[in-house]
């Protein structure tokens, strides 16, 4: 339980490294977690061979959702769009290094949902839970 608030989470929540926006960008997507009002937007710049060269996020919410977004954004830099499409729930939990109950899992996985919906080129409202399984 103490693991939930391990230093990495609190640090990334209080001192995020990738908070901001990219303008112009190649991909931008945002979504909410209606249960708790968490909100995440992720902007990506994509270079040759579909490789993500820059990424940033902005939003508001609990420490888990915001720290997760910071870590996910960091992790996708240098990856190809195809690689990001294959991201799973486990990848995000590995980044966070914690185990989560069903409610907090939604907080942790919002950033995954947003980045994958963006990479897949979905419209607002089309991002479903199939993206975070």
């Amino acid at each position: 339980m103490d693991d939930l608030y391990r230093e990495l989470i609190i640090d990334r929540f209080q001192n995020p490294q990738f908070r901001g926006s990219l303008d112009p960008n190649d991909i931008s997507f945002e979504d909410d977690n209606p249960l708790c009002g968490d909100h995440i937007r992720i902007d990506l710049r994509v270079g040759d061979d579909d490789v993500i060269t820059e990424a940033a996020f902005d939003g508001r919410g609990c420490s888990i959702s915001q720290a997760s977004a910071d870590l996910v954004v960091e992790s996708v830099i240098g990856k190809t769009l195809a690689e990001v499409k294959n991201y799973t729930k486990e990848d995000v939990l590995d980044l966070l290094g914690i185990e989560l109950g069903p409610v907090r899992l939604k907080c942790a996985l919002l950033s995954l949902k947003v980045v994958k919906a963006g990479v897949y080129g979905l419209n607002v409202g089309e991002a479903g839970d199939d993206l975070i399984e």
Partner: peptide
């Protein structure tokens, strides 16, 4: 601190509050 984090930390001591 987000209320969900408040609620989760309180839960460790058996304290049930609602967040949202």
């Amino acid at each position: 601190v987000h209320p969900h984090d408040v609620s989760q930390i309180l839960d460790r001591d058996g304290i049930a509050v609602r967040a949202g």
